[in-house]
C-alpha cells in the first residue's frame, strides 16, 4: 500500500488524496495551521502532527525521494530557480561559450557563478552571501574573477584582448593565458575598495596597484567602490592622489556604486 493512501485517514482531510497533483512543503512552527493548501502547494506543519502521524509522513518523504523527487530547502529552491533563469540568458551563455577552451575550466565555473552574482547585484539585492560562497570555494582567484566580472571586464577588456592577440600572426593560447593570468591574479586594470580597509590601507593598495599597472605598460586604473562608505573612501583617495594624476579622473556614479578611472 502506498503510504500516501494512509495519510488522509491519519490526518483526516478529504483532499489529501490530491497530494500527487500538488507540491508538498514542510514547515515546523506553532503558529501555522497543521495543513493548508495554498496556490497549488500543500503545506504540512510537522510541529502539529500527532506522534502516530510522523512515521507516515516520513514514509511519504522517503518514498518520494526513492521515486526521484528532490528534497530541498525552500530558499535554496528559489536560488536554484533564479540561477537557472539567469544562467540561460543569451548574453551569459554566449560569454561562457566564448571563453570555454580559452581560459581554465575552473575559471569558467567561477565566471558562471560570478555572472549570476552580477545579475543579482544589478537587481539591487544583497550579494554578500553569494560572494562569500565564491570566495570560500575558490579563494582569492574567485574573488578577483568575481570583481572583474562585476565590473564587466570579461566583456570590455579580456574578450577584446583575446581578439587582438588572436589577430596577431604569432598568436598562441599560452601567450594569451600568460596575460590573462596576470589579469586575474593581479588585476592591473582594476582595484576594488573594501569596507574593511582603512583610508591608509586603501591608499597603499592603490599605489601598489598603480605600480603593477606601470610595470605592464598600463597607464590607467579603475577604482571601484560599492556602498556609501566606500564611495567616501574613494573621494578621500582622489584628493591625495591628485598630484600624481595626468588628467582629470573620469567618475561614474550609481545609486550604490562609484567607478573612477584615473590616468597616471
Amino acid at each position: 500500500m502506498n503510504p500516501l493512501d494512509k495519510l488522509p485517514k491519519l490526518i483526516c482531510i478529504d483532499f489529501f488524496s490530491k497530494l500527487k497533483k500538488l507540491s508538498l512543503n514542510l514547515l515546523s512552527n506553532n503558529c501555522s495551521p497543521k495543513i493548508e493548501i495554498n496556490a497549488g502547494t500543500i503545506n504540512i506543519n510537522v510541529y502539529k502532527l500527532k506522534p502516530k502521524e510522523f512515521p507516515v509522513l516520513q514514509e511519504v518523504v522517503k518514498t518520494s525521494l526513492e521515486e526521484g523527487k528532490l528534497l530541498i530547502v525552500d530558499k535554496a529552491k528559489e536560488t536554484l530557480e533564479d540561477f537557472k533563469k539567469v544562467d540561460s540568458q543569451d548574453q551569459n551563455r554566449k560569454l561562457l561559450e566564448y571563453f570555454k577552451g580559452k581560459i581554465p575550466t575552473k575559471d569558467i565555473e567561477i565566471l558562471r557563478a560570478s555572472l549570476y552574482l552580477k545579475n543579482v547585484f544589478e537587481r539591487g539585492e544583497n550579494v554578500s552571501n553569494l560572494k562569500d560562497d565564491i570566495v570560500t570555494r575558490y579563494g582569492d582567484r574567485g574573488r578577483n574573477i568575481c570583481n572583474l566580472c562585476s565590473a564587466g571586464y570579461f566583456t570590455s577588456q579580456i574578450k577584446p584582448l583575446y581578439e587582438e592577440m588572436y589577430s596577431q600572426p604569432d598568436f598562441s593560447l599560452n601567450k594569451f593565458l600568460a596575460i590573462y593570468e596576470i589579469i586575474v591574479t593581479e588585476s592591473p586594470y582594476a582595484f576594488f575598495i573594501n569596507s574593511w580597509m582603512s583610508d591608509k590601507q586603501a591608499m597603499d593598495e592603490v599605489l601598489k596597484r598603480m605600480e603593477v599597472s606601470r610595470r605592464y605598460g598600463i597607464k590607467y586604473l579603475n577604482i571601484h567602490g560599492i556602498g556609501r562608505e566606500n564611495t567616501e573612501k574613494i573621494a578621500t583617495l582622489l584628493k591625495e592622489l591628485a598630484p600624481q594624476l595626468t588628467q582629470t579622473p573620469e567618475i561614474t556614479r550609481g545609486e550604490r556604486f562609484i567607478a573612477v578611472k584615473i590616468w597616471f
Binding site: 507540491s23 508538498l24 512543503n25 514542510l26 514547515l27 515546523s28 512552527n29 502547494t41 510537522v46 510541529y47 518523504v61 518520494s64 526521484g68 523527487k69 528532490l70 528534497l71 530541498i72 530547502v73 525552500d74 530558499k75 529552491k77 536554484l80 530557480e81
Partner: peptide, 12 residues
C-alpha cells in the same frame, strides 16, 4: 520543478 518536496529551515 514539479518533482520537488520543499521544506523550510524549521523543518530540517
Amino acid at each position: 520543478m514539479k518533482k520537488v518536496i520543499t521544506f523550510d529551515k524549521s523543518a530540517r
